[in-house]
């Protein structure tokens, strides 16, 4: 797929250089920063996976946290009950969330717009309640995983997963016929169908694929944190944060979710360090969403463009004499 000529393009060189820098990170920064970097990688992966569904296909889901939680719980259960090694459990939980999403997607993808959002949110809530009452999952007590205290290991796992999701988004959604088909579903579903696109199949695949990535990342998160309970992996805030990160960075773009995840996660961690556990974060989060939706609907990614076009106007207004009112 890649030719020598493409490898020497500036953006490819920048990409490879940044990969090298990110690979050396564990030996450069403190373990505190490394944990934050791991968290950033995780959220980049999650935001990008949500963006496949919400951005490229235009199906806004508030239930994506369910896939994350299901992946986390399945990895945990496989490791605790069947004593499977981590990577085997991770792959199996990916396959299971994929199948799970196909089943969930079959009825919910018949809905669209806010109905789809509500439908997926209801499914997520259902999963949370289910995990709360089941004995195998530990109910409200949660689930403990075998501890593994190697920060570098988890950094590289999350980094690898984020990279996998990023490359999938790049090759399958940005630069392929499949990506065009997905965008066609977003733009005009009926027209897409009359052009020979099997939209039902496309929607199901995108839903399952993006859920699978969320599930795998959830599994890695469970092993990293070693203790999960219904609210920590199936709470509504997980899906909400994915949505907000994508909206903040720029929906339907490749780098928007990456930027949104970095900004939001760093902000979150900073507030956590400065004020401790408080609801101030949620208030500021809500305020940030309002501001972005009102003034920057295309997200932070469009900021340079918007700034360029409006500063000229603002300066002109500043230095020109006040306009006389016409009668």
């Amino acid at each position: 797929m890649l030719k020598m000529k493409q490898l020497t393009q500036p953006r490819v060189i920048i990409f490879i250089l940044s990969l090298i820098v990110l690979c050396t990170l564990p030996w450069v920064v403190s373990s505190f920063i490394l944990r934050i970097a791991t968290g950033i990688m995780m959220w980049i992966g999650l935001a990008l996976s949500w963006n496949m569904l919400g951005g490229y296909m235009g199906y806004i889901s508030f239930g994506h946290g369910a896939s994350f939680g299901v992946g986390a719980y399945i990895t945990g259960l496989l490791m605790m009950l069947l004593h499977l090694p981590f990577f085997v459990a991770l792959i199996i939980s990916g396959v299971i969330t994929y199948i799970f999403a196909m089943i969930v997607g079959y009825p919910t993808l018949r809905l669209s717009g806010s109905y789809f959002a509500i439908g997926t949110w209801a499914f997520a809530e259902m999963m949370r309640q289910l995990v709360l009452v089941l004995d195998t999952t530990g109910g409200p007590e949660g689930l403990r995983l075998p501890p593994m205290l190697n920060d570098n290991f988890f950094y590289f796992v999350m980094f690898g997963l984020a990279l996998l999701v990023f490359l999938t988004a790049y090759f399958f959604f940005e630069n392929s016929d499949f990506g065009l088909k997905v965008k066609a579903v977003r733009e005009e579903e009926v027209a897409a169908r009359t052009l020979g696109l099997n939209t039902t199949w496309i929607k199901n695949q995108v839903f399952a694929l993006s859920s699978m990535f969320a599930g795998i990342i959830g599994g890695a998160f469970a092993y990293w944190i070693t203790y999960i309970h219904p609210d920590s992996v199936l709470g509504p805030l997980i899906a909400d944060q994915m949505v907000i990160m994508v909206l903040l960075g720029g929906i339907g773009t490749l780098f928007g979710p990456v930027i949104g995840a970095i900004v939001l996660y760093v902000g979150n961690q900073y507030m956590l360090a400065a004020w401790g556990q408080s609801s101030a974060y949620l208030i500021i989060l809500g305020l940030a969403i309002c501001l972005v939706i009102l003034f920057l609907p295309e997200g932070l990614l469009s900021l340079p463009r918007v700034f360029k076009s409006t500063t000229k106007g603002a300066f002109a207004r500043l230095f020109s004499p006040p306009r006389k009112t016409r009668i």
Binding site: D177, L180, K181, K183, E187, E188, A192, L195, G196
Partner: peptide, 16 residues
């Protein structure tokens, strides 16, 4: 039409 896609992309989707 697929409003947010280019003219070429619109035609290309028809060709798939």
């Amino acid at each position: 039409l697929f409003n947010d896609l280019t003219v070429i992309e619109n035609i290309h989707i028809g060709q798939i």
